[in-house]
């Protein structure tokens, strides 16, 4: 068959795989909703969980879509569509595709016309993310029963343990936000952008939280995170204008040190 990165047959295959993935989500959703009823979780709680999760997802999902558009230049539409709907995250897939294209001596901006190159890229991207895909279904039960053994003995500790895990993850990402501040001494104010964006989002979250409790606006708590996310993202446009484009390349650094 004649090859093209946007060949209808690839679209069809990708469409089928994504339908299966969608079906899995619906399957688990239906079962969890049923179980929620049996556990007597308030239906208002469930409704809020659904609506705020959906609203929260919109902005990050559009960011994923930006990744699809960026990768589609060389890989066509269906492959990035698949890779970013299933397991992929923008950072991983862009790097994986880049590594494969580099190994093939193919520029990242040119559309692939050779099916053998295309298949090579697909293999690199698929095998690279296969570890957690295969491992998760095999070990989740074991990890959970291990956790239960530690957790069930002491109720207070298990609650602290939970908070500590989330806090540990959040602190890692907080640290990451500051990873470029050392460049400020070299004259790159760009490193301040993520810090300021985080600050704006944090301040907004705090204000919304205070408003919600002081004025008893319950719905505000449900949308506080998505609102501060969007405000933070919008502020990034402002800070980038002030501090300059975010990307600090090695070339820029070399120019400064040289």
């Amino acid at each position: 068959m004649e090859f093209s990165v946007n060949s209808p047959i690839i679209y069809i295959m990708v469409g089928i795989i994504i339908s299966v993935v969608l079906a899995q989500s619906v399957f688990f959703l239906v079962r969890a909703l049923k179980r929620a009823k049996e556990l007597n979780i308030k239906s208002s709680t469930i409704k809020k969980t659904i609506s705020s999760s959906a609203i929260f997802t919109i902005a990050p999902a559009i960011a994923v879509l930006v990744g699809v558009v960026a990768l589609s230049k060389s890989l066509g539409i269906p492959l990035p569509w698949l890779r970013l709907s299933v397991i992929g995250s923008i950072t991983y897939e862009t790097v994986a595709a880049g590594n494969a294209l580099e190994a093939l001596g193919q520029g990242a901006g040119t559309t692939i016309t050779d099916p053998s190159i295309y298949v090579t890229v697909v293999w690199v991207m698929t095998l690279s993310i296969a570890a957690s895909l295969i491992l998760a279904p095999l070990v989740t039960k074991k990890i959970q029963s291990g956790m239960n053994k530690i957790g069930l003995k002491d109720k207070k500790w298990s609650e602290i343990f939970n908070n500590a895990m989330f806090l540990g993850m959040i602190s890692a990402f907080l640290g990451y936000v500051f990873c470029d501040v050392t460049y400020i001494s070299k004259g790159f104010l760009q490193g301040l952008t993520p810090v300021c964006v985080m600050g704006v989002s944090a301040v907004f979250m705090a204000i919304l939280g205070l408003l919600a409790t002081k004025l008893k606006i319950r719905w505000l708590t449900d949308y506080a995170l998505p609102i501060s996310l969007i405000v933070g993202m919008a502020s990034a446009i402002l800070f980038t204008n002030i501090f300059g484009g975010y990307e600090i390349t090695t070339q820029m650094l070399q120019e400064v040190t040289a």
């Binding site: 990050p60 990402f173 964006v197 989002s201 944090a202 979250m205 996310l229």
Partner: peptide, 10 residues
């Protein structure tokens, strides 16, 4: 800047 905006709130 989605990650800083997200984790600031959280």
């Amino acid at each position: 800047m989605i990650l800083p905006a997200l984790f600031g709130g959280l």
